[in-house]
Simulated scan of single mutants.
Amino acid sequence: MNIYGVTGWKNSGKTHLMVRLVEEMTRRGLVVSTIKHAHHASDVDHPGRDSFRHREAGAQEVIVASPGRWALMHELRGAAEPPLAELLARLSPADLVLIEGYKREAHPKIEAHRTETGRPLIAPGNTTIRAVASNCAPGGLTVPVLDLDDTSGIADFILKEVGL
């Protein structure tokens, strides 16, 4: 399975870049899946919905299915968050899985960087970052610096890295 990550600090443009990359790569005919890591408790369900009520009643897993999509929700109920490898194993086959977040995992990544965040680059201390996509030209890096707005160029870089 080909995997590649987009990482960076909060408000660095990770999600915007991920969306643009998915659009670009699917336009090129690739099957792309994504995994998004959240540092906070997140919920894809809402109070009052039948599936929410099933989970609140104690169901370990709830599948919601419709003619347009299906979703599986799994309650951890105090258990540890599953490792990235376990989540990847649950995905259907795809040409590429793009992963947002997971700064400390071992897969290759591009760092999204915006000067407005005022945060330092992660790349100098993280060997899994293969390039920086930035809205400025930070110096002193040993990895390529790509224009954060050049979606096609970033997609080309990632696809070359994974051999697609």
Rank of each mutant, 00 (worst) to 15 (best):
A89F: 06
Q60L: 06
A106H: 14
V44L: 13
I122S: 12
N135Y: 07
H54N: 02
K36P: 00
T15E: 03
E61I: 13
G118H: 05
S92F: 02
D95M: 04
T142R: 12
V143P: 03
C136A: 15
G29Y: 03
I158G: 01
T26G: 04
H16W: 02
R90L: 15
D50Q: 04
V64G: 01
V62K: 11
D43C: 03
E111F: 07
A131P: 01
A80M: 08
G29E: 06
R27K: 14
G58M: 00
L146M: 15
D156R: 00
F157Q: 11
L84Y: 13
A71W: 03
V32H: 09
K160N: 15
E23S: 14
V62I: 14
L159I: 09
H40V: 09
E81L: 12
A131Q: 02
I154S: 00
R69L: 05
E111T: 11
R114V: 11
L30Y: 14
V6R: 05
R130L: 15
L141T: 07
V162D: 06
L121Y: 02
P124Q: 10
L121A: 12
P67F: 03
D43F: 14
S12L: 06
D156A: 01
K14Y: 08
L141E: 02
I158H: 00
R69M: 02
L164T: 05
G29F: 04
S134T: 06
E23C: 07
I63S: 13
L72W: 01
T142A: 14
G8D: 03
L96H: 05
L164C: 09
D95W: 04
G163L: 02
G153S: 07
L164Q: 08
P47Y: 03
R104E: 02
M25C: 09
P83E: 12
V145K: 07
K160W: 03
V132W: 05
P120N: 11
T151D: 09
A123S: 13
G13A: 15
L84N: 10
R28N: 09
A133P: 02
E56I: 00
D50N: 05
R119F: 06
I129C: 08
M25L: 15
S51N: 07
R28P: 03
H54W: 09
D50W: 11
R53S: 14
P138R: 06
G153R: 05
R55I: 04
G118L: 04
E161T: 12
N2F: 07
V145C: 02
V32C: 01
V143D: 06
R104L: 04
A112H: 12
G101P: 08
K14D: 01
S92V: 00
G153P: 07
G101F: 07
N126W: 09
H107R: 11
W9G: 08
K109C: 13
E116Q: 12
L87Y: 04
D95C: 05
F157A: 09
P108A: 15
G68S: 14
I122E: 14
I154N: 00
L164M: 11
A133T: 01
P83R: 13
P82Q: 06
E75L: 10
P82H: 12
K109H: 11
A137H: 08
N126F: 08
D43G: 06
L159S: 10
I158T: 05
V44Y: 10
T151M: 09
V162P: 05
R77A: 15
L76M: 08
G58R: 01
D150T: 10
L21E: 08
Q60C: 00
A41N: 10
K103Q: 10
L96V: 10
Y4I: 01
